Simulated scan of single mutants.
Amino acid sequence: MQVKPALGVIFALCMLAIVFWQQTQFEIKAPDSTFITITGEQIELHELRGQPVLVTFWASDCRVCIEEIPDLIALHEQFAGKGLQIIAVTMPYDIPSRVKQLSEMHSLPYAVALDIDGTHAKAYGNVSLTPSSFLLSREGRVVSRVVGRFDFADWRAQIDAL
């Protein structure tokens, strides 16, 4: 039975492919997006070059997204003075009035943008799971991507290093 060694080789090759894929994913330039916030403000991503940016896709009906809000507020409070911009982008199916209500209820200090037609979700790799967050370097490159709840200490360290 030579099955076990063959499975080990296949597993090792799969792990190498995953590591390579993850590394290449973070070498891409972020899409040049224009976000429209719930207050009507227009944010041109290319105008934020020179600053770290956190783009996070969320939904008002996503429990983990709501649980993440205090961590996002804490990141904003800690790093806004150092240039960090946070843009929370709602999913296309989200109801704008519900998004506004949640934003006011939690006194969100960062930008909240609507993605009515799914343009932003598509530009960021067809985002369909929330939360999905992308940390962009000062040069506009995706340096980290997390699907699901992010690790606050890890992101704080990554942002601090930018």
Rank of each mutant, 00 (worst) to 15 (best):
V112S: 02
E47G: 11
D160W: 10
N126M: 09
I43S: 08
R63E: 03
G40R: 13
E77I: 05
G50P: 06
G83V: 12
G40H: 05
D115L: 03
I159A: 07
A88M: 14
L162F: 13
H120M: 11
S97Q: 01
L16S: 00
Q51V: 12
I28G: 13
V147E: 15
V99E: 03
H106F: 00
V99C: 14
Q85T: 14
F20W: 12
L108A: 06
L45Y: 02
E47K: 15
H106C: 05
C14P: 01
C14I: 07
A157Y: 13
L129E: 09
Y124Q: 07
S33K: 08
R149I: 05
Q85Y: 15
F20R: 08
V19S: 01
I43C: 10
F79T: 04
E68S: 03
T119N: 08
P131H: 08
A17K: 04
V142R: 06
S103Y: 03
I69E: 13
L75N: 07
A111T: 06
L72Y: 03
P31K: 06
T34F: 09
P5M: 11
H120G: 08
D32I: 00
L54A: 13
S132D: 12
T37F: 00
F150Y: 02
F35T: 05
W58P: 01
D160R: 14
M1H: 06
M91R: 04
H76K: 13
E77K: 02
Y124F: 12
L162K: 12
C65R: 11
L102H: 03
D154I: 09
I18G: 02
K4P: 01
E77Q: 15
A88S: 15
K29L: 13
D61V: 12
V53L: 14
G148F: 07
L162Y: 15
T37E: 06
L45Q: 00
F57D: 03
L48G: 02
K122H: 14
Q42R: 15
Y93H: 15
L75R: 11
V99G: 04
A6S: 09
D151W: 06
C62N: 03
E67L: 11
R149Q: 02
V146S: 10
L84Q: 09
I28D: 04
V64N: 04
Q2P: 04
